[in-house]
Measured scan of single mutants.
Amino acid sequence: RKEMTAACTPRRRIINLTSVLSLQEEINEQGHEVLREMLHNHSFVGCVNPQWALAQHQTKLYLLNTTKLSEELFYQILIYDFANFGVLRLSEPAPLFDLAMLALDSPESGWTEEDGPKEGLAEYIVEFLKKKAEMLADYFSLEIDEEGNLIGLPLLIDNYVPPLEGLPIFILRLATEVNWDEEKECFESLSKECAMFYSIRKQYISEESTLSGQQSEVPGSIPNSWKWTVEHIVYKALRSHILPPKHFTEDGNILQLANLPDLYKVFERC
Rank of each mutant, 00 (worst) to 15 (best):
M101D: 01
P93L: 02
N65W: 00
K227N: 08
G220I: 12
I27L: 12
R36P: 15
S189D: 04
S106Y: 04
E183L: 04
L150Y: 00
L155E: 09
L96T: 03
D145I: 02
V20S: 15
N65L: 00
W111S: 15
L142E: 01
G148P: 01
F82K: 01
P168S: 13
V234A: 13
S221E: 11
D145C: 08
P223R: 06
A53I: 09
I171W: 00
V45C: 10
A53C: 09
L69T: 03
N179P: 02
R89Q: 11
L255V: 04
Y204K: 06
E185W: 11
E165D: 03
S212T: 12
G46P: 00
N16W: 15
I200H: 10
Y124N: 01
I205W: 08
I151F: 10
C270M: 15
G86D: 14
P162K: 00
L174H: 00
A94R: 01
R239Q: 10
L64R: 00
E108Q: 04
R201F: 12
Y160Q: 00
L190F: 15
F97D: 02
G86P: 14
H241G: 12
S43Y: 13
L39H: 10
E188M: 05
T5E: 11
S212M: 13
Y139A: 05
L129M: 14
L164H: 06
F248G: 12
D251P: 06
E177N: 14
Q56L: 02
L164G: 03
I157G: 01
E113L: 08
T67D: 13
D145Y: 01
K265F: 14
C8T: 08
F197P: 00
K192E: 06
P162D: 00
A6I: 12
V126Q: 10
A175W: 12
F267Q: 02
L99D: 00
S19T: 05
E71C: 05
S109M: 15
V161E: 07
S221K: 11
R11C: 14
H57G: 12
F97G: 02
A103L: 00
D105P: 01
R11T: 13
L129Q: 00
G220C: 09
V161H: 03
L153G: 00
T5K: 10
S109K: 01
Y160R: 00
N28W: 14
N49H: 11
E165G: 03
R36M: 14
P163R: 06
P168G: 03
C8F: 06
G213D: 09
R201M: 11
E147I: 07
K227G: 06
P117I: 15
R89V: 13
S91G: 06
T112A: 09
P261G: 07
K68A: 13
V126Y: 13
A237H: 09
P244V: 08
L260A: 03
L136T: 04
K246P: 14
E127Y: 15
L21V: 04
Q215D: 11
Q30K: 05
L136F: 08
G166K: 05
L129E: 01
L260M: 13
V48S: 11
E113M: 04
P219G: 10
V48A: 13
Q214V: 10
E146S: 03
T59Y: 14
L153D: 00
E217R: 10
S212W: 13
T229V: 04
S22Y: 13
G86W: 13
P154V: 00
I14M: 11
I169L: 08
E127H: 08
E26C: 09
I77M: 08
G152N: 08
P162I: 01
L211M: 05
S189L: 06
S240P: 08
Q76Y: 09
C270F: 15
Y80D: 04
R269H: 10
I205F: 07
A122K: 01
Y264D: 02
I125E: 01
V45P: 00
P107R: 06
L64S: 10
G166R: 05
K265V: 12
C186Y: 02
E25C: 12
F170Q: 00
E177H: 10
A237D: 14
L211P: 05
I157W: 08
P223H: 09
E71A: 10
R89W: 15
L155V: 05
G110F: 05
V126R: 02
N253I: 04
A237K: 07
L211A: 09
F82D: 05
G110K: 01
S106V: 03
K132W: 15
E182F: 14
I171N: 00
A122E: 00
E29F: 14
Y124F: 14
D98E: 06
G31W: 15
I15D: 12
Q203Y: 12
E26H: 11
S191V: 03
P261M: 10
L142A: 01
K60Q: 11
E33A: 11
E92W: 14
Y75E: 12
S109A: 12
K132S: 05
L88D: 02
S216R: 08
F44G: 02
H32F: 13
Q51A: 06
H247T: 04
N179A: 03
V45Q: 05
E25K: 04
G152D: 01
L39Y: 05
F170K: 00
Q214E: 09
T67I: 10
L69G: 00
L167E: 00
I77Q: 14
H40S: 08
S216Y: 08
S22G: 14
W226L: 05
T176Q: 01
I242M: 09
I77V: 06
E71R: 08
K68N: 07
V266K: 15
W228F: 08
L121W: 11
R173C: 15
P50H: 03
H32S: 05
I171L: 12
M135Y: 06
D138E: 13
F82G: 07
W228G: 05
Y124V: 10
I144G: 01
F97E: 02
V178Y: 00
I205V: 07
P50W: 06
E113C: 03
N149D: 13
L99Y: 03
E183I: 03
I77Y: 15
Y160W: 07
T229R: 05
K246M: 13
R13A: 11
W111L: 15
L150G: 01
S221W: 11
K68T: 04
I254F: 05
I125H: 01
E250N: 08
D181H: 02
L17G: 10
V20A: 12
F140G: 01
Y62V: 15
D251L: 08
E165H: 04
A55E: 01
E108G: 03
K192W: 09
P117R: 15
K130D: 15
E185V: 02
M135R: 03
Q58C: 11
G220Y: 11
V218R: 09
K2E: 13
E188Y: 10
H57S: 05
E114N: 05
L167I: 07
L172H: 01
G86Y: 14
I77N: 13
R12S: 11
M38Q: 09
R89Y: 15
K236Q: 11
S22Q: 09
M135A: 03
G46C: 03
N259D: 07
E231G: 14
P10V: 12
I15S: 07
L260E: 04
L99E: 00
S141C: 09
S22I: 13
Y264P: 04
I157S: 06
N65S: 11
I125V: 14
E134I: 05
N149C: 09
T9H: 11
Y264K: 04
W228Q: 07
K132P: 01
P163G: 08
L54D: 00
